[in-house]
Amino acid sequence: MLRESHPDATAGAHAPPAAAPVDAAAMTARAAVSCQNVDGAANRLTRLRSEGQFVLRPTHPKGFEPWAHGAAAAGRVSVSAGTAGPLGGDRLSLDVYVGPGAVLVLNEISATLALPGTSGEQSVITFTVRVDDGATLIWLPEPVIAARNCDHRQDIRVSLAASARFLLREELIVGRHNEAPGNIAQHVRVVRDDRPIYDQNLRLGDRYQGWDSPSVADRSKAVGNMLIVDPASGIGTNRADLIEANTVGVGLDDDVVQASAVAADSLALSHALDEVLNRLGPPWSR
């Protein structure tokens, strides 16, 4: 029954790889950023390749940055949207590499709005991230908004070296203001020193049976996660922060903190995740 109505509603891991789009209007783009310490220069942007949706620019601090705040020398890159979308059928990818000892802050200029395409195809963005020993990536994307009828998937594959530091904050919004929810699946897999530490495929929207469950998202429009890996910091030890009724910050390991938040809208979600950082104290909060 499920299979007939929703071909891959339960088979996320078996979902087809991101093949070339069949829709001629759809876009395939591959962007990349690398930040390394080279020739005595710290945090050089050794690679900055923009394509399609992803326009990458060196930038300056944009407000408060967890951990990297005041670190003038950090590499900073902003991603801005070169085109509308992603649209259904698009196949986009961004590769991020932070070399040994380097520090990169990666943010976005504006929210991503996933839209349906004419083909009814899924849009897929693949992020492939490697953070080497002693390196830091502070990744602060803006919210991803799944517009009505869209079918969007994001695969985020992160490989951390044993002494890498990492922050990822993700905010998913289903439907614009007063709009029916679109569909989004966001699969984040983080491997540290070749062992999996976090693997979650969050699926929201009516395409995914059960997403409106009181055990999943309960028809809330905004769902967020945050993962913080800070080697030898002790930030995760015995941590179980209960923040409002619908947000928790917990320790996955002595130096790993994860937050889950479900909120009515983007603003409430953002505040909830800020509060998770506040509980960690400096340098993760102001």
């Binding site: 339960t10 996320g12 078996h14 897999r189 999996p196 055990s215 179980a240 928790v248 938040a261 479900v262």
Partner: peptide, 30 residues
């Protein structure tokens, strides 16, 4: 349907097994 899909992972690479998240389950459990 779910059990049938799940059974197809009997010999799969463990890294490829489903990872469907249930954020409210995590929140209420804490």
């Amino acid at each position: 349907t779910i059990a049938g899909d799940a059974a197809t992972y009997a010999d799969a690479d463990p890294a490829t097994l489903p990872a469907f998240g249930a954020p409210l389950s995590d929140v209420v459990a804490e």
